[in-house]
């Protein structure tokens, strides 16, 4: 499986314990900065009703869908209970020279 590192934004454009939406070649992603200053990325849409997760709230390592409060661990993609039951796909992230990159396979 070949990976393709794509630049998302400057690292300081995402607040701590927050998330932004990143669209690339017809796909949409959510890119997170955790309270302990690590970066993560998942698919951008909730697995319940295809809502952009980047409009949701990040608390610790959880992203909560803005529509129906479906919860995922954004570090692992794991669905944390009703109404979501399908996990989110996650993507490798790296920070280089002050910019965030995600690996899109």
């Amino acid at each position: 499986m070949s990976s393709n590192w794509v630049e998302v934004c400057a690292a300081d454009e995402i607040d701590e314990e927050d998330v932004i939406r990143f669209d690339h070649e017809g796909r949409t992603f959510a890119v997170y900065r955790s309270p302990d200053d690590e970066y993560f990325a998942t698919d951008g849409l909730c697995t319940h009703e295809h809502i952009h997760l980047a409009d949701g709230l990040v608390m610790d390592d959880i992203i909560e869908c803005p529509k129906h409060n479906g919860r995922f661990n954004y570090k692992t993609g794991q669905a944390k209970g009703a109404p979501v039951c399908v996990n989110l796909r996650t993507y490798p992230v790296k920070v280089e020279a002050g910019s965030v990159f995600i690996a899109i396979s």
Partner: peptide, 9 residues
């Protein structure tokens, strides 16, 4: 859209 969702939460 979901403009108010985060703050309502």
């Amino acid at each position: 859209g979901n403009a108010v969702a985060r703050d309502i939460r």
